[in-house]
Computed example of a mutant assay.
Amino acid sequence: MMEKKKLSRREMDKLRHRRQMLAAALDLFSLKGYHNVSMHEIAGKAEFAIGTLYKFFKNKEDLYKALIMEKADEYHRALSDVLSKENDTLAVIGDYIAAKAQIFANSVAALRLYFAETRGASFNIKAGLDQDIRKLYDEMVEQLVSTMKRGIDRKVLKEGDPYYMAVALEGLTNSFLFCWLEDPKHHSYEENVQMIKEMFLNGCLAK
């Protein structure tokens, strides 16, 4: 097995600076929307000179795409890890529902941006971003479909179209996430994980 190349001090500093810039952009985009944020604002919030920001990203669109793709990749990778386990189907479904709480638990800004992007609000980004995100999403849904299919084959879930089951679970979890985003004090997603699971299985569990 090849050893991971150790990064130089200069490379580590560049990675840290890039993370700081993306974190500042995430906060601003999630609060104000893509069109209402300037590169100067991002540089100021990240406490870098505007010229330094342009050394990392050629323009605002480039920065936004990097941010969205990084967050989308983290999100779908975490869910893919859960769905790739060959555990009991009901355990995988429960873990999948819970994983969404863990992904967004420490980042309301990421959740706000996720919904803005997926619902098409405020953003109009070119450069093939939609296709890239769609590819990640489709791969994750296919894994969820495979989970449903295994559950049907094992007689754990009732006979039905595994794709529609996957879409139903996605819609249900996202609805609860949206409620949590709108009013986190009264609609905790994490506290409702068991309810979400029961609501889904009430329609899909084999008798």
Rank of each mutant, 00 (worst) to 15 (best):
L136Y: 08
L22E: 05
I152E: 07
G33I: 03
Q131L: 05
D183L: 04
L28W: 13
L113I: 01
I68W: 06
V193K: 01
E198T: 03
A24R: 13
E47L: 12
R154A: 15
K71T: 08
K45N: 11
E70K: 15
L129S: 09
K55N: 15
V167Q: 14
E86A: 13
I97M: 03
F104V: 02
C204R: 10
G203C: 11
R154K: 15
L129A: 10
G51N: 15
A101P: 07
V193F: 01
A49G: 15
A91P: 00
S8R: 07
M199T: 15
D13H: 06
S107T: 07
Y75W: 06
D183Y: 00
S84N: 14
D27N: 13
G160M: 11
R77Q: 13
M140A: 07
E142L: 08
E70T: 12
L26H: 10
A166H: 06
Y75L: 05
I68V: 15
Y114C: 03
S8P: 08
F104H: 00
K126H: 05
L26E: 14
L169S: 01
T147I: 10
A24Y: 13
A66L: 00
C179Y: 02
R154T: 14
S146C: 09
S30Y: 02
E61Q: 11
A25W: 07
A72K: 02
R119T: 12
H17N: 14
M2W: 03
K155S: 11
N174F: 02
D81I: 00
K185L: 09
M2H: 01
I103L: 08
V92G: 03
I196E: 02
A168E: 10
N106C: 03
Y34L: 07
E190V: 04
T118H: 02
H76Y: 14
Y137R: 15
L15D: 03
A166R: 06
A43Y: 12
R9C: 04
L15W: 03
A168W: 06
K14L: 12
K60W: 05
V141E: 14
R134Y: 11
A101N: 12
L22C: 03
E182A: 04
V82M: 04
L205Q: 15
I68D: 08
D183V: 05
E3N: 05
E70P: 03
E41R: 12
L205H: 14
L144F: 08
P184H: 05
V82S: 01
L26G: 07
L67Q: 04
R150D: 11
K71Q: 13
A78P: 00
F57S: 06
N192K: 00
Y137E: 12
G151P: 12
F57H: 09
I93N: 12
I68T: 09
G120Y: 10
V167M: 15
D81R: 04
Y163I: 09
K65H: 06
H186Q: 03
A110K: 06
K65G: 01
A46D: 13
E3F: 03
L144I: 07
V37D: 05
L7H: 07
N87L: 10
K85T: 06
M1F: 05
K4L: 14
K71C: 04
I93G: 11
A23V: 05
F200W: 15
E142Y: 00
